[in-house]
Amino acid sequence: MQAVIQTKKLGKRYGSFWALENCDISVPEGSVSALVGPNGAGKSTLLKLLVGLKSASSGEISVLGKEPVQHADFLGDIGYLAQDIPLYKNLDATEHLKMGVNLNKRFDAEFMGKRLKDLQIPLDRPVGKLSGGQRAQVALALALAKKPKLLLLDEPVAALDPLARHDFLSSLSQAVADGGLTVVMSSHLLADLERVSDHIVVLASGRTQLCDDIETVLKEHKILIGPRKDERELGEGLTVIHETHTARQSTLLTRVVKGAKVPSDWQQHEPNIEEIILAYMGQGNEGVVR
């Protein structure tokens, strides 16, 4: 699979503060990638760098084979939903559709119109007066009607109630199922991401902590439980991500590279993706693990 997004040592600095530093990610074509990390980890910054709304301070960045630029050809292939889903509040859904036609060379107005109708969104009411869920659907329809190759979503479901969230994610899954679309979506709601994504990027403190297929991630991580042991050297191919200790027992969330042997004195358990993500998110400044 080809990488739609590839960054190398990507960095973004605001004054003396590095919001993103040495960020290496790779997102394969056709994947739905979950971008997770604590507040201030640099998720929004990364997404804005990818769509060219911000420019990088250091490192390399390649999106759809190009460096992000303020150019119609580049932007035409990308759908982007900013945080808080900004729309023109006094314009109605139909007018947003017309805007899409106005501002894009390639825009499937019919698709958007049908989609809004199917979702029973009031077409002639200013979007400022729609519910949060309806607004999110209008924004998603607008982004999808561009027929983008890459869709970048910055916490699209954060403000939505559970039902609206469910509807939004269903719409998204359906669009992905139609094919030809790669999605990167940031969120705090791990359970939701797990439902729709097959790839994961964990950012913490401006650095990539994890970037891989969810399947691989699940396969390569084990919870090891054994007698108390403070040193973290377990052997070749084993990296401890997170450890908890009681007086007599150590619990280690460990990355086990394919083929590596786990010492027989450890009990092995399968962690779920949420446990793994939380372990990486807590890792913070302890260095990049890939």
Partner: peptide, 14 residues
């Protein structure tokens, strides 16, 4: 209102 992020990511250069 953040709409610059919306309009600048449509298929028209800034």
């Amino acid at each position: 209102e953040g709409t610059n992020g919306l309009v600048w990511t449509q298929g028209t250069s800034r």
